[in-house]
Amino acid sequence: MSNLVLETENLEKVYTIGRRKINALSDVNLRVNKGDFVAIMGPSGSGKTTLLNLLGCLDRPTNGKVILDDIDVTRVPEKALWKFRKHKIGFIFQTFNLLPYLSAIENVELPMEGTKKSKSEKRKRAHELLEIVGLSARKEHKPPRLSAGEQQRVAIARALANNPTILLADEPTGNLDMKTSFEIVRLLSKLNLTQGTTIVMVTHDSNVASRAGRILFLSDGKLLNREKKGMHLLKGDLTCPHCHKPIQPDHTFCPRCGKKIE
C-alpha cells in the first residue's frame, strides 16, 4: 500500500497579465508521504502561496497534475472541488481568517456544517480540537478578544475539524512574534508526531522551517533539487501537560509524574 498522500507532476502555473505571461510555477514535482511534515521555503514571490493554493484546490494549474489520495484533482470539475477542500484538506492561513462574529468553538464547528455529524457530535469534536490546541478555556471567546497566537490555534483546530488527509499551512507564523511563532510550530510538530497529521507548510522563515521534518526550497517558481532534513522536534519540545517535563511522542504515560497523556 502506497504511503503517498500528495503528489504533483510537472505542475505549472502561468498568470497572464495583459499580453505578459508570468510563470509563477514551472515543472514542480513534489511527493508528500503520509505523516510527513514538509516545509517549503523560499523568498517572497518565489511561488510558495501559488503552490499551496494549487495543492489546496483553491486554484487550477495551467499544466500538470495534483494527485491527492490517488485522485487527480485537476480533472475534478470546479463545482465538485468543495468536497476535497472539506474532507481532504485543512487550510491554515497567515491572517488566520476566522469569522469575527463567531466564537472560537463556532469557528471550529464551521467546516463540519453539512457533514453527517449531529449537532452534539460537532460540538464535542470542536471541544476536543480546542483542547488539543490548548484553547478549551477560551472556546466562547470571539476572535477579536483572542491574541494573534490564540487565533492561529483556533484556525489550526478548524483546519483539523474534518480530520483531513493533509494540512496546508500558508505562512502560519507570518503574523506572529517570535515566541508565539515557536509555540505554533511546536503545536504543528506535536500534531504531526502525536496525531500523524501530514503537514505542508510554506514559510520564508528558516527558523520556522527548521522545525519541519523535510525542508524544500522554491525559487522563481521552481522546486530546487535539494532537500534538507529539519530538526523536527527539539529536545523539550514535547512536554507533559501535567508536570511540563520532556516526554517522547510515543509515551502514553508521563515517565516522570506517571499521569496519563491525552
Binding site: G56, L58, K79, W82, K83, R85, K86, H87, I89, F91, F93, N97, L99, L110, P111, E113, G114, R158, A159, N162
Partner: peptide
C-alpha cells in the same frame, strides 16, 4: 468571508 467559507469546504450551494 465567502473566500474563507469556500476554502474550508463550503459548496456554492451552501
Amino acid at each position: 468571508e465567502i473566500g474563507i467559507l469556500k476554502a474550508i469546504g463550503f459548496s456554492n450551494w451552501n
